[in-house]
Design a protein around this nucleic acid. Structure first.
Lengths: 188, 188
DNA sequence: CAATTACTATACCACTCGGTATACTCCCGT
DNA sequence: ACGGGAGTATACCGAGTGGTATAGTAATTG
């Protein structure tokens, strides 16, 4: 692993555990076993490091969800695949998803929130498109695609948060339960 | 407004907007028009200020939800009252709820997360009790009260987050929609 | 071979951080 | 009138912040 990768890896762990503002560049370079000029050579600034971290890790998630969200006139199936895509990714990249999750709800004027804002928009967009297409098949869903996208994503993140903190295990059963609850509620 | 209140008020606004770690004590006392020893006289430390902020504002929310969550064998009604309690509170104390929300998803080893952990537990407990009681009336819900409590709270915070950012307006219709979706899913 | 380029360490910068020692003023109870 | 405590400001502390000027090394390219 070269120095650039070492920096990314250690910064990710530290940011995920204690937050962007609470972790100094000195601590990052110490953990990576290098010095500050190396960090600033590759990333220009602390904020640049954060953005590189997001870009590197988000794209695989996005592509994975994108493929899963291809609508083929079977909404339950598609939603299950989307949830599965999120769950699998979060499980395979726990520190990263922890960080992204904390940044999602970060204060609006904070550096971390501004850095993920665009990524959130893209996820929302993806799901909106899905629900918009689905509404053509399910008339009673019409006009609510934005709300569905937002609450669906919120539900996914709630479940992922539970899983990351050990209150649930990420498996096919959880995926089914999540989608089923989203579509049919808690009674059935 | 005395100096103690000035500090609390200004610190709340700043923490809600940019986060605990990103805001220094100097900035807080400048905004409040006082000096540091005054802050340290009342709160002992920056962390003490944060805890005072939480204690002051959380208790009213907790009591409000507690009353709303009194189960009387009508789950939809009770859930609507709980959601309404959260919505009303979040609407009346926007900066505070913004802050609490960001702290809820903050990194696990961060100061803010540790400070709200206990409050989160108390909310979760309240809802678990509710769903446990409800499961006596609705057998098919049995054994899932923890999951229901967690996802219900997650759903509430998703909606509140939407409302706080202007993507939805907090009114009775939204309350009804939120509970209805939670109980019956998106199809009906 | 020489020159350039990528990369990295030493040592440092100005500034901000959370927190405090000291002293002062003001008010309250005696 | 006086002691004592609450509250507040001035001025300061050591440590750490994000960031950089300089110089060096090692590999690549002409």
């Amino acid at each position: 692993m070269d120095n650039r990768a070492k920096i990314l890896s250690n910064a990710l762990k530290l940011f995920a555990a204690r937050g962007y503002d609470a972790v100094g560049t000195q601590e990052i370079v110490d953990a990576a076993g290098i010095t500050k000029p190396t960090l600033y050579h590759y990333f220009g600034s602390k904020e640049g490091l954060l953005k590189a971290l997001l870009e590197t890790n988000f794209e695989p998630l996005y592509q994975s969800v994108r493929e899963a969200a291809a609508y083929q006139h079977d909404l339950p199936l598609t939603l299950e695949r989307v949830v599965l895509a999120y769950f699998n990714f979060a499980d395979k990249h726990r520190p990263y998803y922890r960080m992204q999750l904390s940044m999602w709800f970060a204060p609006v004027d904070s550096v971390p929130f501004k850095a993920v804002a665009e990524l959130n928009r893209r996820q929302q967009q993806l799901l909106e498109t899905l629900f918009l297409l689905a509404a053509e098949d399910h008339g009673n869903m019409r006009g609510r695609h934005q709300m569905y996208a937002a609450t669906f994503l919120g539900m996914i993140n709630t479940y992922v948060s539970l899983a990351l903190n050990g209150y649930a295990s990420v498996n096919d059963d959880l995926v089914y339960k999540a989608v089923h609850q989203f579509m049919h509620g808690i009674f059935s």
